[in-house]
Amino acid sequence: MNEIEQTRNPTGNSSNPPLEVHDLTVAYDQKPVLWDIDFELPEGSLTAIIGPNGAGKSTLVKAAMGLIPASSGYTLIYGKPLDKQRHRVAYVPQRESVDWNFPISVMDVVLMGRYPHLRLFQRPGRDDRDVALAALKEMGMEPYHKRQISQLSGGQQQRVFLARALAQDASIYLMDEPLAGVDAATEDVIFQKLKELRDGGKTVVVVHHDLQSVPDNFDRAMLLNLRMIACGPVSEIFTDENLQKTYGGRLNILSQMIEESRQQRFVRESES
């Protein structure tokens, strides 16, 4: 880490990529689930992490954030070690990771996004509430700010989590399946927001399940299955060969399904 300390530019070197992860290996009970992952992401990019169930997508996000112990590897944020830069990274956990019966309001959850900007013992102030409300508004959740979180639908919960990340006002966003179980309308809202973030120069990484919506919505992708199969612009790496490597034998059914749903979408669009 010392070399890194020395080479860092105190004014924030713009040549350093916002997010780099190097030789990351993670094992649960001796069984490796991520093997020597290495990547860098440029500023103003929107990246999808793609891979079959159990490929290690959630593990990658968690390990990159230092939430679970890794056998090896490290994360750099704008060339600096993660621990000094955590406030610049907003993590959106999987929705199922918390107890939605917890006695707090939507506003309380979003205000948690302001905690990195508060000192120990310091309570959120009026400014923080304004930021939180603005974030809720951006996600179309402002009318719900007083609600208890158990009274939200799955898609609304997801939006609250995203609003919390927005309230954090970070430069890098790491999201674990923010589109899982949301309806088409919410999906549009979220994709729209992700693109806005990217266009505002943020670096956004999203664990994503729906292969079919990748080319239209993301500019980069990481194909993951224990190892990094490919990482780069969607147009370059989204090849049959790479997908085949990522999904193995399952691709045949999968590509059929994609074809099937494309046709259905075509039919639906021509109907309306």
Binding site: K62, M65, G66, L67, D83, R86, H87, V89, Y91, P93, S97, V98, D99, F102, I104, D108, V109, M112, Y115, P116, R164, Q168
Partner: peptide, 14 residues
């Protein structure tokens, strides 16, 4: 409150 509700987010912000 934060640590009880969402420990992994808490850890992510340091």
């Amino acid at each position: 409150k934060l640590v009880s509700f969402d420990p992994s987010y808490a850890r992510s912000i340091g």
